[in-house]
Design a protein around this nucleic acid. Structure first.
Ligand SMILES: [Zn+2]
Ligand SMILES: [Zn+2]
Ligand SMILES: [Zn+2]
Ligand SMILES: [Zn+2]
Lengths: 146, 146
DNA sequence: CTTGAAGCTATAGTTGCTAGAGACATTAAG
DNA sequence: CTTAATGTCTCTAGCAACTATAGCTTCAAG
């Protein structure tokens, strides 16, 4: 059995984060030692590794909650899990598209500035006027999140 | 003079967001009508458009605060403004790199799943075990933000 | 002149944590 | 065995950048 600190170290998750996951019900309530300290076994460790990995792949905690409850029912079809993954892929693709446009605009800005006074700075000028942009990079309904 | 609603419409910014910007000091306190409603002139409109555009390009409100105070001093060198823009470009590039890796992993996951039971689902399997990943996509110190 | 939209303030909620305060538990050294 | 240094406990508050709600006042159209 691992203490919370050891578990965090093993899984690459900070201690308060583990407690937070328990608090929001993503991890079950941990067993406690005689002195009221949390103790974790292999199952908890695997569950936390799953969460950590899914977070690293950009899934929200809500999506992870769903994936975890799916993974607890091995006999069911995996269609729902696959749908969550495909939605996450679509999300990532849309962010990629947006960031690619942003990168192009930012590059244009910094390249075009000759480096004089603020009054002549292309960066300041472009920020004040989107019509000077080459692409339509504007924030659609897509959230900035992640 | 525009009311807050008209200003928001013109600049593509929601009304509560404008009030929020005023509250945090990003916009100056607006003039008020006899009935205590905010009124905006062309300067406020330009300032809000600048903020909106910079937000669309991914700058943080802190960076925008700095850019705005720089743009209020037209005689000074634009080096500081350019540095902020280059930092933002670097940030975007690092997010792009990470998202590109995520996209590759997510694609691998969804492609490899044959679509049967959860017990055999490649999505669930890979989420539980990063060693099944092709790339090291893990979250460095870089924040997930935006 | 009435009514509905738009404005006002103030507070709380969102996501996914992170940081602190103050108290108890465990471990290692002396 | 005692102390000191960590580690852990709970609880609360804070971060970005808004968004939503409640309960009010003001404005503009018919
Ligand atoms: Zn410049
Ligand atoms: Zn633009
Ligand atoms: Zn599957
Ligand atoms: Zn992985």
């Amino acid at each position: 059995m691992l203490t919370i600190g050891k578990l965090g170290e093993a899984a690459g998750v900070k201690v308060p984060t583990i407690r937070y996951y328990e608090q929001i019900g993503l991890l079950p309530e941990a067993e406690r030692s005689a002195g009221n300290q949390r103790l974790y076994g292999r199952k908890a460790m695997e569950r936390l590794a799953f969460i950590r990995h899914a977070r690293d792949l950009g899934f929200t905690l809500e999506a992870i909650r769903d994936l975890l409850s799916l993974s607890d029912r091995p006999d069911q079809s995996c269609a729902a899990a696959d749908a969550i993954a495909r939605a996450q892929l679509a999300e990532v693709e849309s962010r990629l598209a947006r960031l690619t446009a942003l990168k192009a605009e930012l590059e244009r800005m910094v390249v075009q500035c000759a480096g004089g006074k603020i009054a002549d700075c292309r960066v300041i000028e472009v920020l004040g006027d989107h019509s000077l942009c080459a692409t339509d990079h504007r924030h659609p309904e897509t959230e900035l999140a992640q």
